[in-house]
Design a protein around this nucleic acid. Sequence first.
DNA 1: TATTGTTATACTCTATAACTATA
DNA 2: TATAGTTATAGAGTATAACAATA
Lengths: 158, 158
Amino acid sequence: MSKAAHQRTPDGAVAPRRDLEGLVGYQLRRVGAEVVKELSRIFSVVGLAPGQFSVLMLIAEHPGCFQMELARLANVDRSTLVPMIERLAQLKFIRRRQSDTDRRAFHLRVTARGRKAIDQVMPDLRAFEETLTDALNAREKTALLRSLRHVEDALLRQ
Amino acid sequence: MSKAAHQRTPDGAVAPRRDLEGLVGYQLRRVGAEVVKELSRIFSVVGLAPGQFSVLMLIAEHPGCFQMELARLANVDRSTLVPMIERLAQLKFIRRRQSDTDRRAFHLRVTARGRKAIDQVMPDLRAFEETLTDALNAREKTALLRSLRHVEDALLRQ
DNA sequence: TATTGTTATACTCTATAACTATA
DNA sequence: TATAGTTATAGAGTATAACAATA
């Protein structure tokens, strides 16, 4: 139980404490949400939302993977993936092929159309990266990516 | 338009490229989503979701503020705030008082019950911070917060 | 005319639980 | 029994557009 004594202004009101600004968790949530808004604009030109696009990229990086593997890679429940996969298939950005050895499972692959969509947005994605890291030098950017990886490891380990 | 030539495996498939790992934007979205999942667990003990709790904290830091100010502080549309404010008022964590000078607007303040809720979760929030930054030394943590602030500035400026 | 807050609506992301088909 | 994927359902966060009351 906290025994934190709130600082008070003369009229008894709780004084602004600015607790949030020093919290890594809060800042990550906040920046993450802002990033998603901008990514929405970028990916909308190929008809995708950020989550859908990242699944497309993961399939490109793991050709022939199953949905269960994808769920692990993306850190989401398998049910979360279903509408995303459905959307990508509907746009013919991926194709599903039943496994020869396990008829419950389907290999996922990016189609030529899917690769075209990735190529189409990649320049804007790179430009967005430039904007994001505009105020950081090469060393700071490397340190940021490294710290984010450590933070993510901590999150997944717990 | 990108002229990126995809590397291919002998059978013609697109080779894994690991493009995502080096993208700050992607990592921020990913880590932000993970943070939200853990914050959901932490705040659920007082009946709040992460967004709701951060609005509560913002009101605590800006006593007497209006919803329009809050929307700016939280970087969300004013309509997004309505159900959050409603939830906080329903739990009696905040109270609304009509402004004397502008009868369209309502001053928002955290109640004693709201402060109690903040105090109740703060220890867990601090512990979560510890876990998050476990692998970072003091200098790295400061650098991370500083870089996140720069990235957010870039996002809000564009 | 402009602003404060609300409502209606819609989409994305997320999960849990129960289900089918298959292993 | 266990696993791959689906469906039904629900909650949270986000936005746009149109509205009422007030400035």
